[in-house]
Design a binder for these strands. Structure first.
Lengths: 166, 166
DNA sequence: CGGAGATAATTGAGAAAGTCAACAGTTGAA
DNA sequence: TTCAACTGTTGACTTTCTCAATTATCTCCG
């Protein structure tokens, strides 16, 4: 009763006919957090679609990509970088290893950790997957000019990696 | 065998000592999609932390926010807007209704749909939650200047709502 | 008017993902 | 050497996702 409007069903039209676009005007739709979440949703939906033909998901694709980076990540590093629990990395690597795309190699400096490296087949698989993902990504970003895409990527990088640095 | 480097464990240092920052140089870390996902992760982690004191999560907060928007969303609209299954909306609304934050009202134009409206207590709860979420969001965006934050939000809006329009 | 087909909410089941604790092998340092 | 810390692994448990089926209502067309 103490709030701004009495608002039962009077303030705005209830549901109209067509669309959801009304809700673009909500406060929520202007929170960066929410927008990032929605962007991710549309992004991974698309990516999962194109990756399905290669029997990959964004998760396994991410692991494969890092394995192919030449940076020799350990499982612990994959977990930290991807914000996943170490046990989830185990499952993802198991799966990629079983299909012959990556290998676990003992880290000579620390035999506790496994360094994940791609096989030749894994590299080919990644090349294919990366091309498709990038194409799909371009589609998703079609609303932006190339310069704007760079700008968006750069801003996101600074936010996404802010806790540590960039 | 046909790929760029022989790369077993020779190309780059295996794991070094400290950090994950090496992986910032990976291709993956430059895909907008991945950056959006990571941004969302840090965002909802923070949001969930501050919302926990109000016994809310980002999900329920989102529903509450839209209920408080004055736009009178139906459950179907909430599902579509939040990219959730209608059955998940049922659970979220049940929960918010049970604690007296929102109400289901029959849409006079279509008695199949429920319009979700906030109670007075729900509005107070939302005001509190929104303040905390916004504060946490500012923290997450502290790497960016105010102008850059606006820019990011604007770019994300265009991507997040691209399928429909803006 | 009166079915036929579509749509909104709901329920329930099963798959996938996230969370957490315990454990073995390894490391680094006191 | 011994002890605390850390990596990968397993297993249990919870939450979230996805999908099909059901009921009530709507819209459209004859």
């Amino acid at each position: 009763m103490t709030e701004t409007a009495d608002s039962t069903v009077r303030t705005a039209a209830p549901s109209e006919e067509g669309g959801i676009e009304r809700l673009y005007a909500s406060e929520l739709a202007n929170e960066t957090e929410f927008l990032a979440a929605r962007t991710r949703s549309v992004g991974s939906r698309r990516a999962n679609e194109v990756l399905a033909s290669l029997d990959l998901k964004v998760r396994s694709y991410s692991v494969l990509s890092l394995a192919c980076s030449g940076l020799n990540p350990s499982q612990r590093e994959l977990a930290e970088f991807l914000f996943l629990d170490p046990s989830q990395i185990v499952a993802l690597v198991d799966q990629l290893e079983k299909r012959g795309a990556v290998q676990r190699k003992a880290d000579p400096r620390d035999r506790r950790s496994n360094i994940i490296t791609p096989t030749a087949a894994g590299k080919r698989l990644y090349a294919e997957a990366a091309a498709e993902v990038q194409a799909a990504g371009e589609g998703a970003l079609s609303a932006l000019s190339p310069a704007e895409r760079d700008q968006l990527r750069s801003l996101l990088r600074r936010v996404a990696f802010a806790d540590q640095q960039d």
